[in-house]
Simulated assay, not measured.
Amino acid sequence: MRKGDHGGVYNHDALAGLALAPLWETDVVNEDILLVAAHWHLQSSADDMDWTGFTEWLEADPDHRVAYDAIALDDALLDDLRPQIARALSQTPQTDIVDISEARRRRRWLPWAGGAVGTAVAAGFAAALLLPGTQPSAPDSRQVSAPVTGMRQIAFAGDAHMTLARGSSLDLSGADQRDLTLQGTGYFSVPHQPGRQIVIHAGEFQIVDLGTRFEIANTKNTLRVAVAEGTVSLRSAKLPAPMQISAGHAVVVLKKLGTVQQMSATPAMVGSFRKGQLVYEDMPLPVVTAELHRYSGKRIVLAPGLEQRRFSGALAVNHGSELVTDLAKLMDLRVSSQQNIIRLSAASGN
Rank of each mutant, 00 (worst) to 15 (best):
Q91R: 14
Q91I: 03
T92C: 02
P93Q: 02
P93E: 05
T95A: 14
T95V: 12
T95Y: 02
T95L: 02
D96E: 11
I97D: 08
V98E: 15
D99G: 15
I100D: 02
I100L: 15
S101F: 12
E102C: 12
E102P: 15
A103M: 14
A103V: 14
R107S: 10
W109P: 06
W112A: 14
A113I: 14
A113T: 10
A113E: 15
G114V: 10
G114A: 13
G115E: 01
G115F: 06
A116K: 13
V117H: 08
G118C: 12
T119G: 15
A120R: 13
A120I: 10
A120K: 14
V121R: 11
A123Q: 02
G124M: 04
F125T: 04
A127G: 11
A128I: 00
L129S: 00
L131F: 01
L131Q: 10
P132Y: 03
G133R: 00
T134Y: 02
P136I: 05
S137W: 04
S137G: 14
A138S: 09
D140S: 12
D140Q: 09
S141E: 11
S141H: 08
S141G: 08
R142E: 08
Q143K: 08
Q143E: 04
P147G: 10
P147R: 13
P147H: 02
M151L: 08
M151C: 01
M151F: 07
Q153D: 06
Q153K: 08
Q153C: 01
A155K: 06
A155D: 06
F156Y: 07
D159E: 13
A160C: 12
H161E: 01
T163M: 14
T163D: 03
L164F: 13
L164A: 09
A165E: 11
A165F: 03
A165C: 03
S168V: 07
S168G: 09
L170Q: 12
L172P: 05
S173P: 08
S173E: 08
G174Q: 08
G174F: 12
G174Y: 01
A175I: 03
D176T: 11
D176F: 05
Q177K: 06
R178Y: 08
R178M: 12
R178E: 12
R178T: 12
D179A: 15
L180P: 14
L182D: 02
L182C: 09
L182T: 07
L182S: 10
G184T: 05
T185W: 00
G186V: 04
G186N: 06
Y187P: 01
